[in-house]
Design a protein around this nucleic acid. Structure first.
Length: 253
DNA sequence: ATGGCAAGCTAAGCTTGA
């Protein structure tokens, strides 16, 4: 099973930039999208059906043009769950889960904390999401949690760890959380397969950051421990330029 | 230390992002 996670920063803008053609060539079985920034009536979801994603699920935020996640699949899931059941999380369309026969896939868009007024919200979301996952994995041990975590884990995951140590996305409390999340039963599939690779998944639009590769690795395909031996490939697809993020790919046997 | 860019709101400037 080939899974791609991609924060597309607005699905309408990404479609204008050729998302469909790129996705058709990449040809994953399952796609987790974040920041769709639209409801399905604001674009044409059938363009995804036309390239094989017969099963597509959209979970927009209540606020127009903001946040929102989706899952596209060539395989029919046996169940789809919208949100966590926790209202303050769910009104922003940040988690969506599709259960396949042997694997459950979550598309996650963790809040940003770069606005100081939203940092507490992000930290609360992180704690509540951890509890949600702890409960869920009892029932669904074969979990893959794909998405934009808005956190760099280690020094290797950010272009300037010294200057950015007090910036949300690389705060000690955030790095500790993601470290604990991993120790609590998940594998950062990219790092597992590429121990020393310096690669990023997000660059600022400003100051030519992408051209100069001044990036952050904040998008992850996290794989639950029971699936460890099934990880075949985990790469970052920096050729895709429809967004300020690039897609991250996971292949399971 | 600061600002820089982009998407999408709504209708020229604001909000959000990391």
């Amino acid at each position: 099973m080939k899974i791609i996670s991609y924060n597309i920063n607005g699905i309408r803008a990404a479609l204008r930039k050729g998302l469909i053609e790129w996705l058709r060539a990449a040809d994953p079985d399952v796609v987790c999208l974040q920041e769709i920034k639209a409801t399905p009536d604001q674009f044409d979801p059938s363009v995804f059906e036309a390239i094989g994603y017969k099963y597509n699920y959209w979970y927009p935020a209540e606020k127009k043009g903001y946040s929102g996640v989706a899952i596209l699949s060539k395989i029919e899931p046996r169940d789809v769950e919208y949100g966590t059941g926790i209202d303050y999380m769910d009104i922003e369309g940040r988690t969506l889960r599709a259960d396949f026969d042997d694997v459950s896939v979550i598309s996650l868009y963790l809040p940003s904390g770069t606005n100081p007024l939203r940092l507490e919200h992000k930290l609360k979301f992180m704690a509540d999401f951890q509890m949600y996952v702890d409960q869920l994995k009892i029932e669904l041990p074969n979990l893959v949690i794909c998405g934009d975590y808005n956190i760099c884990h280690e020094e290797i995951d950010i272009h300037d760890p010294v200057r950015l140590k007090n910036t949300s996305g690389y705060l000690p409390v955030e790095r500790e959380w993601i470290g604990k999340f991993i120790n609590n039963g998940f594998i950062d599939s990219f790092r597992h397969m590429n121990e020393d690779e310096i690669q990023y998944s997000w660059w600022s639009y400003r100051a030519g950051a992408r051209q100069r590769n001044k990036g952050w690795r904040i998008d992850y395909n996290m794989v639950a421990e029971p699936l460890k031996d099934r990880i075949k490939r985990a790469v970052i697809l920096s050729d895709a330029v429809h967004s300020d993020h690039c897609p991250v790919l996971l292949e399971l046997n």
